[in-house]
Simulated scan of single mutants.
Amino acid sequence: MSKPNALSLGALPSTHPVKLTLAVPADLKAQLDAYAEAHSRLHGPVDTATLIPHMLAAFIARDRGFRALQTKSVRSKAYGATSPDSNPAGHAPR
């Protein structure tokens, strides 16, 4: 018996959801439904709406550009960098 193909999204952790409503194109909905079906075969029953937040979280976690921007933002805050908005007089920080 061959091992089934692994999906990028593994088993789902439990979460505390916040409701968000969005609209997607019909072809994307069909792909999401197909992914949910494949995921259900590998990990147990799950509906498309339950998968979407986990798919988005996985996407964001793998986005190196976003991670770099987040790290840069944290460093700027840690070292007291100022933005033009935080310096209303327009003077350069000393």
Rank of each mutant, 00 (worst) to 15 (best):
K19M: 05
L51S: 07
L69S: 09
P93M: 02
D27C: 01
I52W: 01
T15G: 11
H16N: 15
S76V: 04
F66E: 14
A49I: 04
R94T: 14
T15L: 11
A57M: 03
T48C: 15
T50I: 05
H16K: 14
D47N: 14
S83D: 08
A61G: 09
S8G: 07
D85N: 14
R67V: 08
K29E: 03
L9P: 00
M55N: 01
L20C: 11
V46C: 06
S40G: 15
A11G: 06
V24C: 01
S73C: 11
K77M: 11
T71L: 01
A89Q: 12
A57L: 01
K29G: 02
A6V: 02
R67F: 04
D47S: 11
A81C: 13
H91Q: 14
P13S: 04
L51I: 08
S14E: 13
L22S: 12
A30Q: 05
M1R: 13
L42I: 02
T71K: 05
A30H: 06
P17V: 04
S2K: 15
V74K: 04
T82R: 10
S86R: 09
A81N: 12
S2L: 14
S83I: 10
K19N: 06
A58K: 03
D47I: 07
L28G: 15
P84G: 03
L32F: 02
A68E: 12
V74C: 03
L51N: 07
I52P: 04
H91L: 14
G80N: 07
S2G: 15
A61L: 05
A30V: 01
L69E: 12
F59A: 13
Q31T: 05
F59K: 13
P13C: 00
G90I: 00
R64H: 08
R75M: 10
N87T: 15
A81T: 07
P25H: 13
